[in-house]
């Protein structure tokens, strides 16, 4: 049997001109981005001291100088390491427990029914409000921040994982059941792979929240970390210091997000090229 002409696959035959125009488009976008950055920074630098007092908005050059000073003294690295440790530890612990709990509930309807009101109650609670309690329990060191970040991440990942198990297409499960699949085979071959997409979504959205958990904890009570740096700089009316710390936070958040995006691309390779 041969392929019918009606459905010969349309292989993506991209000509050179198409590739070239795509590249040209990408360069245009890049040029705009660079342009916006340069103009924005220039306006900021110009406005500072002329239109608005540096006390309020500092200036890019001053922020740069501050960053440089922190790098020189080694302060930046130390604070960054603390915040990153808290974030990553909280993220990993929260994600692992969230996935485990989400799957357990997704695969056990009775348990899910019983725990439902408790979960809703905890889910609705602004997790950040627990920070003082955790500081009380776990002290002003790393532990309280890790616990806070874990807690925040846990709920996001748990909720997504659980929702993912509910969204598994029954038809896929039925087809495998008819093929004689055992319960465990269905879990491994249908439920886990289709939930993976949801787990990744949960993890991706929880990255910034892990950072929020760590930073908020630091701002409330600590003597290390980027949150502390922001708080301490603001306390000394050092606007450049606040901006410099924020800038570093931004870099960290973007980096973490990018790492997750890349790992998602590898794990969910089958989703590429989908129409």
């Amino acid at each position: 049997m041969t392929m019918s002409p009606t459905e010969a696959i349309e292989a993506p035959r991209i000509g050179h001109d198409v590739l070239a125009s795509a590249r040209a488009e990408w360069f245009k976008v890049l040029a705009w981005r660079v342009g916006i950055t340069v103009v924005g920074l220039a306006l900021w630098e110009t406005a500072s001291g002329r239109l608005i007092k540096p006390f309020w908005i500092s200036a890019p050059s001053a922020i740069w100088a501050q960053l440089y000073a922190w790098v020189e003294s080694g302060d930046l690295w130390m604070h960054m390491r603390i915040t990153l440790t808290e974030t990553v530890a909280g993220f990993v612990l929260g994600a692992v427990s969230g996935i485990a709990f989400g799957l357990a509930l997704g695969l056990n309807k009775r348990l899910a029914a019983v725990l439902d009101p408790f979960i809703i109650a905890f889910y609705s609670l602004p997790k950040i409000a627990l920070a003082p309690l955790f500081i009380l329990w776990f002290g002003v060191g790393l532990a309280s921040k890790i616990v806070l970040a874990t807690f925040v991440v846990f709920f996001l990942v748990f909720y997504n994982t659980y929702a993912g198990t509910l969204a598994v297409e029954q038809e896929l499960v039925d087809v495998l059941r008819l093929m004689g699949a055992t319960r465990w085979q269905i879990v491994r071959k249908v439920i886990l792979p289709s939930v993976l997409l949801w787990i990744f979504t949960g993890m991706k959205i929880s990255v910034p929240y892990a950072l929020i958990g760590a930073v908020v904890g630091e701002m409330m009570a600590s003597n290390k970390g980027l949150g502390y740096l922001i708080q301490a700089s603001a306390g000394q009316y050092d606007t450049s210091g606040v901006f410099a710390a924020l800038f570093v936070l931004m870099i960290i958040a973007t980096g973490l997000h990018e790492i997750l995006k890349q790992s998602e691309r590898v794990m969910l390779r089958w989703k590429e090229d989908s129409t």
Binding site: E171, L172, D174, V175, L178, S194, L196, L268, W270
Partner: peptide
């Protein structure tokens, strides 16, 4: 009934 194979209207291939 594991003695029947079922081809449904909708796609039930596992996309991954």
């Amino acid at each position: 009934n594991t003695r029947v194979g079922y081809m449904t209207q909708r796609d039930t291939l596992l996309p991954w």
